[in-house]
């Protein structure tokens, strides 16, 4: 049976070098969507990921100052702010979407942050299910 607990990861092509085994500790369905640059991730992409069933959306871009397109990850960060405001209006916890700045060539950093995010979303899910 397909795992209904889904986490979407929206990231730029360069930030996510993690392999499946790097994320093996995450007991959720991981859906990775790559963009040419995290600055290309729109608020609509984040909202759509929720509509398509994600319980949490991790947005990942290059660490500040290392983006190929200079300000791509800063843009992504602003989009997360916009998406959070919309989620709040819809009475969905805004912290279900989060921006992460990750190092470009270190899969370990990315995997660590993904796990950290997964744990936070899991907590929210458990809280919701016990309510």
């Amino acid at each position: 049976m397909e795992n209904s607990f889904k986490i979407a990861i929206l990231c730029c092509n360069y930030t996510n070098l993690a392999e499946r085994e790097d994320l093996a500790d995450i007991v959720a369905r991981i859906e990775v969507k790559r963009y040419p640059c995290s600055g290309k991730i729109e608020i609509t992409d984040i909202l759509r990921a929720f509509r398509e069933g994600a319980k949490g959306v991790m947005v990942a871009g290059c660490a500040r100052g290392t983006c190929h397109n200079l300000r791509g990850s800063d843009r992504a960060e602003r989009r997360v702010v916009g998406a959070r405001a919309t989620l709040k209006e819809l009475e969905i916890e805004p912290e279900r979407v989060e921006m992460f700045f990750v190092s470009r060539l270190d899969a370990g950093d990315f995997a660590e942050k993904a796990k950290e995010f997964y744990r936070r979303i899991l907590k929210l899910e458990l809280k919701e299910r016990t309510q």
Partner: peptide, 17 residues
């Protein structure tokens, strides 16, 4: 155009919820 896309997606999400 951009705000149309955001609102449309937000309304779909709100209604699905």
């Amino acid at each position: 155009d951009r705000e149309v896309a955001i609102l449309a997606e937000a309304l779909r999400l709100g209604r699905e919820k």
